[in-house]
């Protein structure tokens, strides 16, 4: 689904992502973990086509910056900036037009809005929403295009516990429907139940790639994370 080959990203002389290679399989939930400054967001933004980089990134065989790729991946950014003077409904309609979706696109958006308890706020302007609500809108906008791949950059930040629970259910449903998820997060406990593959980044490199079936059944992902990033301390 997503193939990243030798991705390197520098800001000035600072190497933020250092020659990483990863392969996101279809029908799977993949988590990208790492301490602050490990290069997680830069990796996600590079895959989303927002940064220039060295290396090769393809999504379902298309270059990540091509229109074909953009039609099939969704992106939930770290900070959910919405248009201040557009309502939630207008955001959905805009996405529906930009992606040339049929009526099902909008129906899907409203379905996710209902799941995330946004229905009564559909006619509120972007600037009238709390950060958590903006995050929910951002998630609906990424999901309404029926993507094959979704990139989530810290999707749980700002969400209340119920919304996090609902989002987790959405993750599981998406996987059942054959969608690949690539989730960058700090909140390891929450993804513990449903991750399939984990990439632990440290200092710009992939320090560990782990499949769920390779993990000792008694060991938690969080413990593995600390083993890698803190050398077991």
């Amino acid at each position: 689904m997503i193939e990243v080959e030798n991705l390197t990203k520098k800001f000035g002389k600072n190497i933020v992502v250092d020659n990483i290679t990863l392969n996101i399989e279809s029908n799977s939930i993949n988590v990208l973990l790492g301490p602050n400054g490990a290069g997680k967001s830069t990796t996600i933004k590079s895959i989303a086509g927002l940064l220039n980089f060295k290396g090769k990134i393809s999504i379902c065989g298309y270059s990540n910056k091509s229109l074909e790729a953009k039609k099939i991946f969704g992106y939930v950014p770290e900070t959910p900036f919405l248009y201040e003077i557009l309502t939630i409904r207008e955001h959905f309609k805009f996405i529906s037009k930009a992606y040339r979706l049929d009526d099902n696109g909008l129906k899907l958006a409203y379905k996710y809005a209902e799941k995330l308890e946004l229905t009564e706020y559909l006619d509120k302007l972007g600037r009238e929403l709390s950060k958590g609500m903006q995050q929910k809108v951002s998630i609906c906008m990424a999901l309404m295009i029926s993507p094959k791949v979704i990139l989530f950059d810290e999707p749980m930040v700002g969400l209340d516990p119920k919304a996090i629970k609902n989002l987790n259910n959405i993750f599981i449903d998406l996987k059942k429907n054959g969608v690949s998820l690539f989730i960058s997060t700090h909140i390891i406990d929450i993804v513990e139940e449903f991750w399939d593959n984990a990439y632990i980044m440290n200092k710009g490199k992939i320090a560990l790639y782990l499949k769920r079936d390779q993990q000792e059944s008694t060991k938690k992902l969080k413990d593995t994370f600390f083993d890698i990033t803190e050398g077991g301390n």
């Binding site: 086509g49 229109l67 900036f81 992606y99």
Partner: peptide, 15 residues
């Protein structure tokens, strides 16, 4: 460009 345009428009299939 402002942040919403980057997050929403740049990642959409728009030339």
């Amino acid at each position: 460009f402002i942040s919403p345009e980057i997050n929403i428009i740049f990642t959409a299939p728009i030339k």
